[in-house]
Design a protein around this nucleic acid. Structure first.
Lengths: 148, 148
DNA sequence: GGGACGTGTCACCGTCACCCTTACACGCTC
DNA sequence: GAGCGTGTAAGGGTGACGGTGACACGTCCC
């Protein structure tokens, strides 16, 4: 399994919030930017709120805001906040216990899978939303905060 | 998205072949060991054959064999041979080009995603089927080649 | 205060990858 | 030549995912 598109869309939303500065963005605005639906965005924001990465402001003129500076939000936190599935899918049905290979393959393989997952996560932990936002601003040739 | 179970099952099959030495194993035998169906195994072996990791022997007494010593088969090769999907799923529909964030988010995010993927793959490249087979033999308290 | 705004969450649906099963043609060994 | 085993195709069930409509609740503005 790959990741769902939730991770990329969540990063997209956080970057949009980062380049917007203190101005709250509505789920409808974020949905337009990511070419998806407001409900999907609200579902993601719900998870990001729970993880302490964003917060929501109700009422007119409200919307979503970063709960912390973009420099302090790492991709790994985003990944963990929105992804449900594990990196490796094991056997759909467990191997039989009476098989010398089947009964030990999971245990024997686990350390290697864990190392791969940890290497993957360590890399995501090295990058922050602020770095992505800077790069997007450079590519798009604009300065933050961005007016929409 | 996670990997499919194909990767784990493919490693399972290769380890079974490794511990069996020169004796060919039928898809039915491998299917029993991995608690899946022979057709699924044959589908995996088809990919592993194409990748040069295994070869098949037709007719009575036939079955699958490793095409190379287990010490020379790395998990990364197995992963690439049987996994179709990419590690990261991008936006289901591309972001609009008229959005400063949407038009640059993919380009800005790509380097970080690539680094994570490379770290992941490098770790898989460090482990061989022989190492997994040794560990399984140790856990199962048996010696290779294993008689079934 | 009243009304408009925006969020949070639910149920429902279409789509897709995945895995299982059945079936059958082909090639090889005995 | 007969039996064995592979390779591949077609069809179905299942579950995750993303999109849509709807509605209750809290909050801000006038």
């Amino acid at each position: 399994m790959p990741t769902s598109s939730r991770f990329v869309v969540a990063v997209h939303a956080l970057v949009a919030l980062a380049v917007s500065g203190d101005k709250p963005l509505r789920s409808e605005d974020l949905a337009h930017s990511a070419n998806t639906s407001p409900v999907v965005i609200r579902g993601l924001l719900s998870r990001l709120n729970a993880a302490g990465l964003t917060r929501s402001q109700l009422g007119a003129g409200g919307g979503a805001l970063l709960a912390r500076p973009a420099e302090e939000i790492r991709l790994l936190e985003v990944y963990r906040a929105v992804e449900d599935t594990r990196l490796f899918t094991l056997h759909r049905t467990p191997p039989p216990a009476d098989c010398a290979v089947g009964s030990n393959i999971v245990g024997g393989l686990q350390p290697a899978l864990t190392r791969a997952r940890e290497a993957f996560e360590a890399e995501l932990d090295h990058t922050t939303i602020a770095e992505i936002a800077d790069e997007v601003a450079r590519l798009g040739n604009f300065t933050m905060p961005l007016e929409w």
